[in-house]
Write a protein that binds this DNA or RNA. Structure first.
Length: 512
RNA sequence: GGGCGCGUAGCUCAAUGGUAGAGCAGUGGCCUUUUAAGCCAUUGGUUGCAGGUUCGAGUCCUGCCGCGCUCACCA
């Protein structure tokens, strides 16, 4: 099977490729030279200019992003990962053969080239490479969207665009190639992950890697993806959280561990959810959820400061201060404030449902008590939590891994924290009583046995680990993608995931 | 899964039910300091897919595919 041009532009480019080959030009040569990035070349020239030294002679490489062919002198801008620089191309300097390639437009927008020559400044004042050598490095056969820029005092105006979300995600390489803002988002993402890692390393945590393919799944409320190991004849699950493996390591006498990695949840896809997403979880012995709150505040505000230079960010028009201390509100008070319902006065599902109806809410028909409480949180409280807020003390029956709150049989020592109206993370004082944990697993099994979903499995090996003795500890999980959304002011999780999941377009009736 | 909206040239977008267009890109010219370069000329379309209504469908109807927003789901 051989590629056929899909349109006229591609056909013409393929023809030019053949013409270059006929002329003995290798459109994809093996050998490349580069002495400077575009940014280094400009900096070297400016330094020489300032000191009165001779202008440097440089060899630069990059993609042609602008081309202005005039008679016997032409200009190109080439871009590499560091920036862009103009090439000044004169027939006198390049010789007829090479200049003909320019003039005949054998070198097109999108092609990669290598140019060598002394740096200079044009009459218009732009630092440029006065090319004495010019060579093709890689021919582009398909045209990228063309985006022009007008640089002025007021900033950069852009003309032309590549904005269709579907095509941007399906062809992220093209999106990145033409949209520098998008490239910057993923640089910020990389700095965010690095800053999280640095913070936890400095706090004495050990970074570990635990199984992604798991014989049992657990640690969160979600349906898993299922796969199969052929030789072992065994079904496996892609993990929905790291929790149960990380806590096993506390039994193994690491005081503090963390993992940054991918979780997979077989659930709906929307602005805040991708089937695979990046999570950071940490577990630390000898602290409770108060200690975790302290770490969470310092982690998030410290990462923001490192990544953006400030603890004050703007997200979707809201100014948000991430510096500690964050607001703390009990779930009970938060819900009472927003709905008028005090769930503590209605300790069973039936009476809580009645109270919700009396307050004008619409409670789910077969929701458990804890589920009703959680619904009120999501519907009436969460959208208002713009400034960072810990919501603490959750219903026991939606928190099977969190330790009970002394004196409150329905509550556990758990918090979730919210920023910008997004649920950012979840944490608790972890259960370390193996018999209690076993009962909680069994309760969960009963509570949700009615659901048609696969029953949640009890992880017997996890209980065995806990029976060897687990130190008291606090645990924490946070969505890294959502943190990047906050720090880059992106409203959609797909804008911070390089290759987000999309439906297969090559189905019946679809364009292929 | 439900509701609403969208799908037209490589990209961004037009087009009362009546000959499918523009800008950029491309192609052919002119130009040895341009920079959204300019000027002249010009190519490019199975209007997402399949049906239907109509003398006539990009436009109206039905189904399907994909995307967006939203609701639901997410122990």
């Amino acid at each position: 099977m051989t590629w056929e041009p899909g349109n006229q532009v591609e056909a013409e480019r393929l023809e030019k490729l053949q013409r270059l080959r006929d002329d003995g030009v290798d459109p994809y040569p093996n050998r490349v030279q580069r002495t400077h990035t575009t940014a280094e070349a400009v900096a070297a020239f400016e330094a020489a200019e300032a000191s009165g030294a001779d202008p440097p002679v440089v060899t630069v490489c990059g993609r042609i992003v602008r081309r202005n062919i005039k008679g016997r002198a032409s200009f190109m801008h080439i871009e590499d990962g560091a920036g862009r620089v103009q090439l000044f191309l004169r027939q006198d300097n390049l010789g007829d053969a090479v200049y003909d390639q320019v003039k005949e437009k054998a070198l097109a927008l999108g092609d990669f080239v290598q140019a060598r020559g002394p740096m200079m400044r044009t009459r218009a004042g732009e630092v440029s490479v006065m090319a004495t050598e010019l060579a093709l490095l890689a021919k582009a056969l398909s045209p990228l969207p063309v985006i022009k820029e007008q640089v002025s005092e007021e900033g950069v105006r852009r003309f032309g665009a590549f904005t269709d979300p579907e095509e941007r995600y399906r062809q992220r390489y093209a999106d990145l190639a033409v949209n520098p803002d998008v490239r910057e988002v993923f640089r910020t993402r990389a700095r965010t992950v690095a800053a999280i890692r640095r913070f936890l390393d400095d706090e004495g945590f050990l970074e570990v890697e635990t199984p992604i393919l798991q014989p049992l799944y657990g640690g969160a409320a979600a349906r898993p993806f299922i796969t199969h190991h052929n030789q072992l004849h065994q079904d496996l699950y892609l993990r929905i959280s790291f929790e149960l493996y990380l806590k096993r390591l506390l039994v193994g006498m690491y005081d503090a561990v963390y993992e940054i990695g991918r979780d997979f949840r077989n659930e709906g896809v929307d602005r805040k959810h991708n089937p695979e997403f990046t999570q950071v979880e940490f577990y630390k012995a000898y602290i409770d959820y108060e200690g975790v709150m302290d770490l969470a505040e310092r982690l998030v505000s410290g990462v923001a400061a490192q990544v953006t230079g400030s603890t004050r960010i703007v997200f979707q028009g809201h100014e948000i201060e991430l510096a500690p201390p964050w607001q703390r509100v009990t779930l009970r008070a938060a819900i009472r404030e927003r709905t008028g319902v005090d769930y503590a006065a209605h300790p069973d599902a039936a009476s809580l449902r009645a109270a919700m109806r009396a307050a004008g809410l619409e409670p789910g028909d077969d929701a458990t008590w804890g589920r009703l409480v959680d619904d009120m949180l999501g519907d009436y409280v969460e959208p208002h939590l713009i400034q960072p807020t810990f919501v603490i003390d959750y219903p026991r029956d939606i928190s099977p891994l969190a330790k009970a709150k002394p004196g409150s049989p329905n509550l556990v020592e758990r918090f979730e924290f919210f920023i910008g109206g997004l649920e950012m993370g979840n944490a608790f004082t972890e259960i370390n009583d193996p018999l209690d944990q076993e009962q909680r697993f069994l309760e969960m099994g009963r509570l949700y046995a009615a659901d048609d979903e696969e029953a949640h499995p009890v992880d017997e090996d996890y209980l065995r680990a806990m029976r060897y003795g687990m130190p008291p500890n606090g645990g924490f999980g946070m969505g890294v993608d959502r943190l990047v959304m906050l720090l880059t002011d992106q409203p959609n999780i797909r804008e911070v995931i390089l290759f987000p999941h999309l439906r297969d377009p090559d189905r019946d009736g679809a364009e292929s």
